[in-house]
Structure formats: C-alpha cells, structure tokens
C-alpha cells in the first residue's frame, strides 16, 4: 500500500523568485521490525535557496500540522562535518553533487519538476531504525577495536618533541577528514567499510605517534569490520565517488599493505 499525501498547504517560504516543484518518493518504515515502503509527496513551492534538509523540514511541518508522523532523518550540524545526515537521493548516497553532504546540497542544484527518490543508507550492517534513520554504531565498534593511539591523559611529551614531515602530516589530515557518515558503505555493492577503516588506519600509520600500535591496530580493526558484516572491496571505487570528504581509495591500498605487513610481522 502506498500512500499519496498532497502537501499543498499554503507556502511558508515563498520568498524566492522562482519556486521549484518536486515529486518526492520517501522511504517510510515504522521501526526495525516492520517492512517499509515509499510514500509520495508533491511540493510545488520549494525555494532554490533551501537546503535539501530544509525542504524536508517544510514537508515535516506540514505533516505535523496535518496530524501525520513527520519523516525521521538523522541530521545535526547542517554544515557537512558531523556526519549525521545520511540520505540516498535517486540512488546516490548524499545525492549527485560531488564532495557534498546531503545537508549542504541546495535545491537550486536540482531541475525544476524533478522526481526524487529518498532512501536510507542501505547495508546489512546499518539496520534501519525508522524511516531514513539507520544504526551506524558498527563504525563506533570498529574504532573501539583499535582506531586510536593509546596515549593516556597526562603522559604526553612536548608537542614539538616529535617532528612530523609536512607531507606525512598533510596526508594524515587528508585521511583524518573522514566524517564517519557511512556513504562509502551505502554506495558499495558489497557494503564494504574499507574506505572508512582505511582512512583511520592510514591517518594513524602515517604519523610517528601511531607506530607503536601499527600492526595491532589494523588487525583488530579489520577483524571487527568483518565481524560486523561489512563486505570486502572489489575495487569499484564507488566509495570514493560517494565520499563527501573526497577520501581517496589509495587509502584502501595502504590498508591492504598495512594488513599484510601486520600479518607478517605481528605474532
């Protein structure tokens, strides 16, 4: 059964010169146990200056006013850095715009009259909580398994005691820019988390601070990644294309190298 809500209530934001029209097919699912389905909404007064999530806000305000359940979606900073927002828009995690999170995507980028399918990030390791909200705690468990440098508070030497070549520091920062949103997993046909895991492994193995636990770290994280039900990498590079922070698949090569190195050296 598919419901069709015509959300034609008088516009609350008609301040833009050209209002845009969209047809939205949004995944609705009551909870983890139930099966979901698409619900259809027609919006005919979307300001081009709205962000994608602001468009959903406007829709939700109308749903609440009509006594309906608002569409649940994760979001928080709306600046593209917290990694909470997680929509798959027309089959692409975070939509079509390169290196841009859903919250930073603006409606002026879409064609007037477009039909948009909005789904959660789909992966077995990311069970759906409600509507567009998924459970990504598997990522936290991977970090807990080894994504750190064990440096207890108070035991650090002077920050300049350990020079780090600028190139290494820059490459570490490139990898550390990962926001943990899970778009890499959602974009991968194998639902692999290797871009996420490799970003952390690369960040810490590039730095002198990360050397002491270098082998142990990669083995523990990969073991946890497998146990969580993520798939393997088959070099499609969809993850890099979907990543809102442009994390490179070169990190996955580094991960594989680190893993083999650790297998050979850790006993």
């Amino acid at each position: 059964m598919s419901s069709d809500h015509a959300a034609h209530a008088p516009s609350s934001a008609p301040n833009a010169p050209h209002a845009l029209r969209f047809v939205l097919h949004v995944w609705r699912q009551k909870n983890a146990q139930s099966t979901g389905e698409f619900a259809t909404f027609h919006l005919d007064d979307v300001s081009p200056d709205m962000s994608f999530l602001e468009m959903l806000d406007v829709l939700n305000e109308r749903l609440i006013a009509a006594g309906d359940d608002p569409i649940a979606f994760d979001h928080d900073c709306r600046e593209g850095i917290c990694g909470a927002c997680s929509l798959t828009i027309n089959g692409q995690p975070h939509g079509f715009e390169r290196e841009t999170t859903t919250c930073q995507t603006h409606m002026r980028r879409f064609e007037d009259g477009a039909t948009l399918y909005i789904e959660p990030f789909r992966a077995n390791a990311f069970p759906i909580v409600k509507d567009l909200v998924v459970d990504r705690s598997a990522f936290d468990r991977i970090i807990a398994a080894g994504g750190f440098v064990s440096a207890r508070t108070g035991s650090a030497p002077d920050a300049n005691a350990l020079p780090v070549p600028k190139g290494d520091a820059d490459r570490a920062m490139d990898a550390a820019a990962c926001i943990g949103c899970g778009a890499c997993v959602a974009s991968c046909k194998n639902a692999s988390a290797m871009l996420f895991v490799s970003a952390k492994v690369a960040h810490l193995s590039l730095l002198p601070q990360g050397q002491a636990e270098r082998g142990r770290r990669v083995l523990s994280m990969v073991e946890r990644m497998d146990a969580e039900g993520f798939g393997n990498c088959t070099n499609e590079s969809e993850c890099e294309a979907a990543c809102p922070k442009g994390i490179s698949v070169a990190n996955i090569a580094r991960l594989n190298r680190e893993y083999l190195r650790a297998l050979a050296t850790e006993s």
Binding site: P163, K166, Q209, G210
Partner: peptide, 22 residues
C-alpha cells in the same frame, strides 16, 4: 600547553611547517 601535547600524542594532525614542527 598540556592540551596541545595531549592532542598531538593522540595523533591529532595539526598543521605543520616544512621542518615538521607545529
């Protein structure tokens, strides 16, 4: 001053100069 030491020890990738210092 202790905060910077602590964060660097954790692997926080602060900006650095070519000599490798912060």
């Amino acid at each position: 001053v202790d905060i910077i030491d602590q964060c660097v020890a954790q692997g926080v990738p602060f900006a650095r100069e070519y000599g490798g210092l912060l």
